[in-house]
């Protein structure tokens, strides 16, 4: 039940964002995220954005694996 999927915010209208999730466009509520911005990657769960994706950290994790 804790499944959540990353996507990219395309546009923001009030408390709702249009988000590209795996090629399709979904709407999600932004009430749980501080300062959401268009263009950023976020995590969507049950119709809400629950956190943003830290893309720098994502890169770091991948390079860490490369160096193992």
């Amino acid at each position: 039940m804790c499944l959540a999927i990353p996507g990219k915010i395309l546009s923001i209208d009030g408390d709702t964002a249009r988000i590209e999730v795996l090629g399709s466009i979904k709407k999600a509520n932004l009430a749980l995220l501080d300062n959401p911005c268009e263009g950023e990657y976020v995590l969507v769960h049950a119709g809400f954005v629950i956190e943003r994706v830290d893309t720098k950290r994502a890169e770091e994790t991948l390079s860490l694996i490369g160096e193992l």
Binding site: M1, C2, A4, N29, A31, L32, H45, A46, G47, F48, I50
Partner: peptide, 13 residues
């Protein structure tokens, strides 16, 4: 509503 901390904030909101 059921769910852990991932879900409960969505219900609170």
């Amino acid at each position: 509503a059921v769910g852990f901390e991932t879900t409960s904030p969505t219900v609170a909101a």
